[in-house]
């Protein structure tokens, strides 16, 4: 079974807020969690509802995000989506840890890289 992972982005970082992310990356991994496909999605407007809708329509199985409200977290879990929340750091590093089955909710994956990210 393929894994489809969505990570809301804030430049190269996992977006600090799920509800304020203006873009997201959707990565498809094979059964051995090797990257098959990577797609960047620019969201027409920032909204937790819209992002949840995208997650469901795209058939995402895993969400890696940082701050997310309980309401949306529970909704995604109820929809049988695996959610790793409070992940701080660069999204590629977070994905790498996920692929190696070393990612846990609340991980600060890489904070030494200088990344302001403010627009």
């Amino acid at each position: 079974m393929h894994h489809k992972v969505l990570i809301p982005l804030y430049d190269a970082e996992v977006a600090p807020r799920f509800d304020l992310a203006s873009e997201a990356v959707i990565v498809t991994l094979d059964q051995q969690r090797k990257k098959l496909e990577e797609k960047l999605v620019v969201l027409p407007q920032v909204s937790a509802e819209k992002l949840c809708h995208l997650i469901l329509t795209e058939g995402v199985t895993t969400v890696i995000c940082c701050g997310i409200e309980e309401e949306y977290y529970q909704y995604l879990v109820w929809k049988r989506i695996e959610v790793f929340d409070s992940i701080i750091g660069m999204w590629e590093e977070a994905l790498k840890r996920y692929a190696n089955a070393k990612l846990s909710p609340g991980d600060i994956v890489d904070h030494t890289t200088d990344q302001g990210g403010n627009q």
């Binding site: 970082e13 600090p16 807020r17």
Partner: peptide, 12 residues
């Protein structure tokens, strides 16, 4: 980075 801990709307 501050915005990852504080996560306020204004930061972003």
């Amino acid at each position: 980075m501050c915005h990852n801990i504080i996560r306020s709307r204004i930061c972003l």
